[in-house]
Simulated assay, not measured.
Amino acid sequence: MTAESTGSAPVRVVVVGSTNLDLVVTTPTLPRPGETVLGDALRTVPGGKGANQAVAAARAGATCAFVGAIGQDGFADQLRANLAESGVDVGRLRNVPGPSGVALIAVDASAENIIVVAPGANGELTSLAEPDRAVVEAADVLLCQLEVPLSAVVQAAGWARDAGTTVVLNAAPARPLPAELLDAVDLLVVNQVEAAVVAGQGGPAEPDGLLDALVALVPRVVLTMGAEGARYADRSGLRLEVAAPNIEAVDTTAAGDAFTGALAVAWAQRRGPARPAAVTEVLRWACAAGAACARRPGASSALPTRDEIDALYARTYPTTAPAGRGGTS
């Protein structure tokens, strides 16, 4: 059941996370250690996993608020304006002394990328305040990543758990997670590399093994697999695999953020889908969002609108209704 189908207000998503200015260069091939390659013109694009996912959620139809930090430099106004112009509430975006976060990104001809992040102001978000708590407790979904200090993520997740707000954690960049955070997570979203780190596995592992390890830690897991789609597991024993739309990728930089933001919206609109068909539709809609994003260059500038997600969903999965629009739950 969705907000649209009931006539109620849109779902409320709050993101606690990072915002960066991305410095992006396209190159024929990604450099190896010690190698210099020539690239095309430099582009500056607002990004950061937290900000990207907030914009993605807003464009996917949610009412979204962002809790984060920017610096006192030339990038700060651009980062704040990008969120506000995308329909994200920036009332809890604070300015702190020093530089804003910056990401250095190289994208090759096959749309693969390498990213180095200088956290800047994001690293100063070590604790949250009572006004942040009010925003978290009023939300349907709290969406977090790990580009800000873990202490803030743990604090927000604890507030959300106590208030009955669904906690979605995109554990990126990956690190071992404390029990107090894992206990608060309702839905974990990771790629295969991140999954291995969170699960404490030293080397590559098969998806089934990763899912088994992760559902021992959290109730539900979505494993993203890029162009191959996504897999899902929960403690009821449900296992699902969803194919991604077939598209010509241009830049995959924010595709994962598009997927995660749309997933949070669709999950909340379904009020936590339980049946396999409902979960499948949610995953397909999120895959359509990620694929739609990868068709354009850039980070936040490439994030798709709800109509774009629906269009690619309908083209790829013609026998089911878009999870963000309706259907059974």
Rank of each mutant, 00 (worst) to 15 (best):
E4N: 15
T6Y: 07
T6L: 08
G7P: 10
S8D: 08
V11L: 04
V13D: 10
L21S: 14
V24H: 05
V25M: 02
T27S: 09
L30W: 05
R32T: 11
R32C: 11
T36H: 10
R43V: 15
P46C: 05
P46T: 07
G48Q: 00
G48H: 06
K49H: 04
K49C: 01
K49E: 10
A54D: 12
A57I: 03
R59L: 05
A62D: 07
T63G: 08
V67W: 03
V67H: 03
A69E: 15
F75T: 08
L79E: 08
L79V: 15
R80T: 15
A81I: 14
A81Y: 12
A84W: 10
G87E: 03
V90R: 03
G91I: 00
L93W: 13
N95P: 15
D108C: 04
A111N: 08
A111Y: 10
E112T: 12
N113M: 14
I114Q: 13
I114N: 13
V116L: 05
V117W: 04
E124L: 14
T126Y: 07
L128F: 01
E130N: 15
P131Y: 04
P131A: 09
A134P: 10
A138P: 15
C144L: 08
Q145H: 10
Q145V: 13
L146F: 11
L146Q: 09
E147P: 07
L150A: 07
V153W: 03
V154Y: 07
Q155W: 13
D162C: 11
D162P: 15
T165D: 02
V168K: 08
R175Y: 15
P176I: 00
E180H: 02
E180Y: 03
L187Q: 00
V190D: 07
N191P: 14
E194F: 12
V197K: 02
G200T: 10
E206F: 12
G209I: 06
L210W: 05
L210I: 06
L211T: 11
L214K: 01
A216Q: 12
L217V: 10
V218H: 04
T224K: 06
E228Q: 11
D234N: 04
D234M: 00
R235M: 00
L240K: 09
E241P: 14
E241R: 12
A243H: 13
A243E: 15
A244C: 09
A254P: 07
A255M: 06
A255H: 04
G261R: 02
R270L: 10
P273C: 03
L283E: 14
L283M: 02
A289N: 10
G290V: 12
R295K: 10
R295L: 09
G298I: 05
A299W: 01
L303A: 01
T305W: 08
D307S: 12
E308D: 08
I309R: 01
A311P: 13
L312K: 06
Y313N: 13
Y313Q: 12
T316S: 08
T316E: 04
P318G: 00
T319C: 06
G327N: 07
S329L: 14
